[in-house]
């Protein structure tokens, strides 16, 4: 266990030196073996999550998908009642999905659960979901879209 040593007083010159490059990118030059670690860890965890998907199904969604759903909910909450059009909302969804390596947002239930969650947070009444103009293209993107959105709204 390492203790942090905080001196009672520090000179301005030390601060200046220490802050020389504060907060700049620390991406390092991740090459061969750094990515060894990240990829093997992610592969291992991925496998674990795919293996444990039965329990995740019971809970609704895996951890990754919950994070995606929450981003979609945030997006929906933010654009609900704004000038977002039915044509632009799928684009915003596609951008959000791509952060999670998802290319087909319309095939992901989590997309619709997130929309439902976001609408509820924005105060849209459940019976008005299908009347939201910005959702009209999304509702036709998947035959179960409305029921998934309502499910996301209720949970």
């Amino acid at each position: 266990m390492h203790m942090i040593r905080f001196p009672a007083r520090f000179t301005p010159c030390v601060i200046a030196l220490a802050m020389l490059q504060a907060c700049s990118f620390s991406d390092s030059s991740i090459s061969i073996s750094e990515s060894v670690g990240s990829s093997s860890e992610s592969s291992a965890s991925s496998l674990a999550s795919s293996g444990s998907s039965a329990s995740s199904e019971a809970a609704g969604l895996s951890k990754e998908k919950k994070a995606y759903r929450d981003d979609v909910a945030n997006l929906t909450y933010s654009v609900s009642g704004s000038s977002m059009t039915a044509r632009d909302f799928p684009n915003a969804l596609a951008r959000t999905a791509s952060q999670f390596k998802i290319s087909n947002w319309s095939q992901e239930k989590a997309t619709f659960y997130g929309i439902g969650k976001g609408l509820k947070r924005a105060g849209v009444a459940k019976e008005n979901i299908s009347r939201q103009p910005f959702l009209s293209n999304v509702l036709t993107a998947n035959k179960n879209a409305l029921s998934y959105i309502e499910s996301g709204y209720s949970h």
Partner: peptide, 8 residues
């Protein structure tokens, strides 16, 4: 040294 030399 490198990025965030003032801590992060």
């Amino acid at each position: 040294t490198g990025g965030s030399s003032g801590g992060h």
